[in-house]
């Protein structure tokens, strides 16, 4: 799997390259600035891009902007954005084209190597990987929402995991229940939130995120 990496701090760039190589990713290019990232993404059209939000020259959200611009030129280009902190606003901007294949994770998550690699693969496959922090922020705003309030605690748990972008199988493994049970929870959630239930995992995730983001 071909990866383009955008990270300006040498320490983290080298660490990420080593980690990715250890899991059989091919790092086709590692760049350290916003403009270089945009150029590399358009040129290589990688299977997935792993991007730090903050990049030179502005040291603001240069990485995020470059990723969003690249997705306009290469629709559906899978992008996983990493950051020291998460902002709901940035998550919304990433999700706004409704194309999926986006991830937004705290940098801390790389320490759980297996989960991190799993998130990269999921994004590359067109799925979503939202940091639990983002999901918490989204749910926190939904406190007064009648439909959300109607969910059982277990259903809320499932909703959170689904919003993070996990598949039914992963959710089932996480909650120690059968996939069938998860499917039933999901059907209930979609009924309570009045969302059209789709067969496709990714579509379901995007629908849930869109619902939460509207709150």
């Amino acid at each position: 799997m071909r990866v383009v990496l955008g990270e300006d701090l040498v320490l983290l760039r080298d660490g990420l390259i080593r980690l990715l190589r250890a899991y059989d990713f091919e790092v086709v290019e590692a760049v350290d600035s916003g403009p270089a990232l945009l150029e590399a993404l358009v040129r290589h059209r990688p299977d997935v891009a792993v991007v730090d939000v903050r990049l030179p020259p502005t040291f603001t959200d240069e990485g995020l902007r470059a990723a969003i611009r690249a997705r306009k030129r290469v629709p559906g280009l899978p992008v996983l954005v990493l950051s020291q902190y998460v902002e709901r606003l940035y998550a919304r901007e990433l999700l706004s084209d409704r194309g999926g294949a986006v991830g937004y994770l705290l940098k801390d998550r790389v320490s759980d190597v297996r989960q991190f690699v799993d998130a990269i693969r999921r994004v590359a496959a067109g799925g979503t990987a939202m940091d639990p922090e983002v999901v918490t922020q989204l749910l926190a705003r939904g406190g007064r929402d009648q439909s959300l309030a109607a969910l059982t605690p277990r259903e809320r748990e499932v909703l959170s995991l689904m919003a993070e972008g996990r598949s039914n199988g992963a959710i089932a493994a996480r909650l120690f229940v059968t996939e069938k049970a998860v499917g039933k929870h999901i059907a209930n959630i979609f009924a309570k939130l009045d969302l059209p239930l789709s067969e496709d995992d990714n579509r379901r995730v995007l629908a849930v995120l869109a619902y939460l983001d509207r709150l």
Binding site: L9, L11, L12, G15, L16, R18, L19, A22, Q84, K107, D108, V110, S111, D112, V113, F116
Partner: peptide
Amino acid sequence: QARLVALGMSLGM
């Protein structure tokens, strides 16, 4: 912050 991320990465690997 970056050092701590790197630390976590090393430990994770």
